[in-house]
Design a protein around this nucleic acid. Structure first.
Lengths: 329, 329
DNA sequence: TTGTATGCGTTATCAG
DNA sequence: CTGATAACGCATACAA
């Protein structure tokens, strides 16, 4: 802020305009003020370059027009996209965003909860896999991709439907034997429904399948072992793979190529998320695209809704399939 | 914030602990307080779950412990990386980050300048290509990759050195005829020095070169035309390309492949930035890596330095070459 | 060392 | 419709 000479205040404007302090406040807040007074005040504001002091207003109104976003990082392109769209949605409503990067660290999450309370944010949007996070009950709180309880609204893509769609597409593109591959927490969070949807569809369609799931922190080489152990005469037992995220899908594809397998000729691969090269170019893999913008919109409008109590506890948004060069269509 | 029942204040803590308001303040701020008193206050804080109100403190101290970061977006991986490291650097110093996405829109930039003044941020870090941005002179202001004037410190990678290094590497890897390719503003901003460094090195080494630069907004197809016009008998006139950014390099490589050229067999490509797949996997192309973490550190420590006046007006940080599969090493 | 009192800039209440 | 004035929660200068 202006350190040396402090910035002008409402009192300065009032003096300059020859009106009362309250009148300036009313003009600044767009309330009804007599034409003559209004003009004088606006001229003084212009002249002094007055900008209201948010701290003063926040203190008085007990609102900050700020929402905290708690998210692992912004390096992962999916998170980056989410941050972007949430910020847009907030800005549209004249809200500020207070960003908190957890780096998947639970201690940091706890500290952030404390920090956002100090800053008296008007609400919290969190994307966290910490199962033991204690949610403040006096601040509007919504989560993305992680269901806590019926009292905490959760916004998520239709993960089950996405898994289903992936199986349906692989089948449609001629696959006879498929597999689901993922890595991540086995906690029943939203993303783990991707497997459920995939399995359900395979069972229903009578499509043979296998599941290969690794815990967080397991070495990537286990995927490689899994694939090589399913090879015979240079051919993979599977002709279709559904992978939990685009990131993992891309890594798996590198392995497949190293094993001399063609993608999509020998094996087709579908990922999940909808990541594009450099954020806005072509998709990295054929994939199930998350409705990121809709998720952002829903998160913001939910956390800002006046009566959080009668809001749905789970909002599930539709996904889409997009071709990205690793399938036959 | 706690809407229904308001959160406890220092007065509440003082009453609960049976001490004076000022004593509570001193405990909260870690000042010298008698053991007995300190214990009572800390117990009361614990008991009431007290968290200080940042608005009250900000109003009183005329500081917000907040720095505004003005940046085009977070979708571009380079920006995402920058946002990440700047946030880390700020957090380390107990500062908050107020994010402003310009989307390259000058009107939005102006509005943000206004907004951050209202929020009385303690400083501004800006990455903007708007030449007519009017910088507030009463708020510490530093820029990244864009030199305004000697009174506005600029933090940047050694773009000239990076261009030089790229030429040197291409030569070292056996190139006989090279080209520089870029798109972007022709304003003499920092990134345009990449060309200068490249050209200087080529001249000095006696390496034949060409330059192909497009203005912002020009259709990408012009690059394709440029390349095809330099083809003869299925061979490109160049055996080495230095491209202004990794993003553009990646797009150029797609074109080269479509034209039947092998990378790096027929033509080697070096990009600039150091983007990795999904933020943390392998590099997208062989590239000159920006020292993002160092840029972030320098930006933050500069904007927070007490005496901005005797700080260097340009801080130039060293770059590195990294192999990413599109060169012979 | 601790207590007391003032004011930071704003909004809102109450008189005029 | 406008003017005066009291809070909001906190840090701090000053008094004890």
């Amino acid at each position: 802020m202006a350190k040396g000479k402090s910035m002008p205040t409402m009192a300065d404007v009032a003096r300059e305009a020859g009106v009362a302090l309250g009148t300036v406040s009313r003009v600044v807040n767009g309330q009804q003020v007599g034409g003559e007074f209004k003009e004088k005040v606006e001229a003084a504001i212009q002249h002094l370059g007055y900008q209201y002091n948010a701290s003063g207003r926040n203190l008085r109104t007990d609102r900050t027009n700020t929402i905290a976003l708690i998210i692992p990082n912004t390096i992962n392109p999916y998170f980056a996209l989410l941050v972007h769209h949430i910020n847009i949605a907030l800005e549209k409503r004249n809200y500020r965003m207070l960003l908190c990067f957890t780096e998947y660290d639970r201690n940091r999450e706890m500290e952030f909860i404390q920090m956002v309370r100090q800053n008296r944010v008007d609400g919290i949007i969190a994307l966290t896999y910490n199962p033991s996070l204690n949610i403040p009950d006096d601040i509007p709180f919504v989560t993305i991709d992680r269901f806590f309880s019926v009292s905490v609204p959760c916004i998520a893509a239709d993960n089950f439907g996405g898994g289903w769609l992936a199986a349906k597409k692989l089948r449609e593109f001629g696959c006879k034997n498929v597999a689901f591959i993922r890595i991540g927490s086995t906690l029943t969070n939203e993303p783990s429904k991707r497997k459920d949807g995939f399995v359900s569809a395979c069972v229903e369609m009578g499509l043979p399948f296998e599941v290969m799931a690794l815990e967080d922190g397991a070495p990537f080489s286990q995927f490689e072992d899994f694939l090589t152990s399913h090879m015979e005469n240079g051919q993979l037992a599977f002709d279709g793979l559904f992978v939990g995220t685009d990131s993992l899908a891309w890594q798996i594809i590198q392995v497949l190529k190293r094993l001399g397998l063609g993608v999509p000729e020998d094996v087709q691969v579908i990922g999940f998320d909808g990541i594009r090269m450099f954020g806005d170019l072509s998709p990295v893999v054929s994939t199930i695209v998350q409705p990121v913008q809709e998720i952002a919109e829903a998160s913001v409008s939910t956390v800002l809704s006046k009566h959080l109590s009668n809001v749905p506890s789970l909002i599930c948004l539709p996904v889409q399939y997009t071709y990205g060069g690793t399938t036959r269509e």
